[in-house]
């Protein structure tokens, strides 16, 4: 995750669910969802760092595994990178 992106783009927090391993995204209320469109979107930079800190607290609380921030298009609420779109949607095959 390039630092540049986190700074300027809109970001969401994603991780894998501890029990099932599914890709999950953090909602504004602190719950985690399989649906990226429901994720809390914040501008990168400080708000992003704060979101990541909240997500990392969920990792520390053993709810999710290895959270990171991903860049999301605020208009479509779709992840920008192919990798993250595949994580959000499942395999393309």
């Amino acid at each position: 995750m390039a630092a540049r992106k986190i700074k300027f783009d809109w970001v969401a927090a994603t991780a894998n669910d501890l029990k099932g391993g599914e890709a999950v995204f953090r909602r504004a209320d602190g719950s985690w969802t399989r649906t990226v469109a429901e994720a809390e979107l914040v501008p990168g930079g400080e708000a992003g760092a704060a979101l990541l800190a909240r997500a990392q607290a969920d990792h520390a609380a053993n709810r999710v595994v290895e959270p990171v921030l991903i860049a999301v298009d605020p208009a479509t609420r779709r992840p920008l990178s192919l990798r993250e779109r595949i994580r959000a949607d499942g395999p393309t095959v």
Partner: peptide
């Protein structure tokens, strides 16, 4: 993580 890897368990994009 090191314990699961010793037993062949990876965490991939969508699942273990």
């Amino acid at each position: 993580k090191p314990l699961r890897l010793m037993n062949g368990v990876y965490l991939q994009l969508h699942a273990y």
